[in-house]
């Protein structure tokens, strides 16, 4: 397949995925299935007045939403949808995902600091602790998949799962990556930075209009990117019988995203101290155990 066709198909599928995710989120939160809801909601946010707080940090206030969506999109660009090369084929693709997702944290921190509000700042610093704690399991779970593929290129990682998917080969790694992805996208059991109810909207409380729209879409893009990353790293990417490779990746990604939203519908928000304790006391040692496990399996 030529590179141009590949690009067009990838962009179309990704956009469709983000739209469907918006529908899915609405369904998970309010229990209503409306296909036109995202258009209406986004248009209304576009028309909304942009209220800015007093004595704000203007540079961060403008940069934060853009950095948020850019970081999520950059991570998506290296993930392969189908056979052939992805949008950007990096030899260090697996590391690049981590690198760009780390800037999600910087964006949320900026957004928390900028509006000069107490709740927003508490939410921003909370997310800093949460993401530092949960980026450890993410990095180590990715390391284990890299060990199996013996390459950091994502196409090679998918190729290495030809016979056996990584979810069977390293179930602990999958579980850690899955939960840490939810923490990274601050989906409900881990939604401490926004925490409606205790923080009154937290980081996003002071954002209105176009900037809030960028944040909302950016978060959907983030969830889509993380689902795609889960598919590529653990669920065998494009491997599957009968259907073409693009369709398989797309279906698996949507299934992962649906499971994210499904869990977040029924889960209770975790207290921040147990959130950190779980990560440092249990998840990080488990991730190290996972690396050991994969190492032993590789040597056998």
């Amino acid at each position: 397949m030529s590179q141009t066709v590949y690009w067009i198909v990838t962009i179309l599928l990704f956009t469709a995925g983000v739209y469907l995710l918006a529908v899915m989120e609405r369904w998970a939160v309010y229990g209503r299935l409306e296909l036109t809801y995202p258009v209406k909601s986004w248009l209304s946010l576009l028309g909304q007045e942009s209220v800015t707080p007093r004595k704000l940090d203007m540079v961060f206030y403008e940069t934060a939403p853009l950095l948020f969506i850019t970081a999520a999109l950059l991570a998506a660009m290296v993930l392969p949808f189908g056979q052939g090369s992805p949008a950007i084929d990096l030899a260090t693709g697996a590391l690049f995902i981590n690198a760009s997702l780390a800037y999600v944290m910087v964006a949320v921190l900026m957004a928390g600091w900028a509006p000069n509000g107490v709740y927003a700042m508490v939410g921003g610093w909370r997310f800093l602790g949460q993401l530092i704690a949960y980026s450890m399991p993410i990095v180590m779970a990715i390391t284990a998949t890299v060990m199996r593929a013996e390459s950091m290129a994502l196409t090679k990682i998918v190729d290495s799962q030809q016979g056996l998917w990584n979810i069977v080969y390293q179930p602990v790694g999958f579980l850690l990556f899955y939960l840490s992805s939810m923490a990274l996208a601050f989906l409900p059991p881990f939604d401490l930075p926004v925490a409606p109810g205790t923080l009154a909207g937290g980081v996003l409380a002071e954002f209105t209009g176009v900037r809030l729209l960028i944040f909302r879409v950016g978060r959907l893009v983030l969830v889509m990117t993380l689902s795609l990353a889960t598919t590529v790293l653990f669920l065998g990417g494009w491997h599957g019988p009968f259907l073409p490779d693009f369709v398989w990746t797309f279906l698996k990604t949507l299934a992962v995203a649906a499971s994210f939203f499904g869990i977040s519908r029924f889960a209770v928000r975790i207290r921040y101290d147990s959130l950190l304790a779980w990560s440092w006391k249990y998840a990080t040692p488990a991730a190290l155990f996972n690396i050991l496990w994969v190492g032993i399996l590789l040597l056998l």
Partner: peptide, 13 residues
Amino acid sequence: EFLGILQIMMMAT
């Protein structure tokens, strides 16, 4: 490439 991406990643945190 490796060092560049590692630098960008580590410094964010």
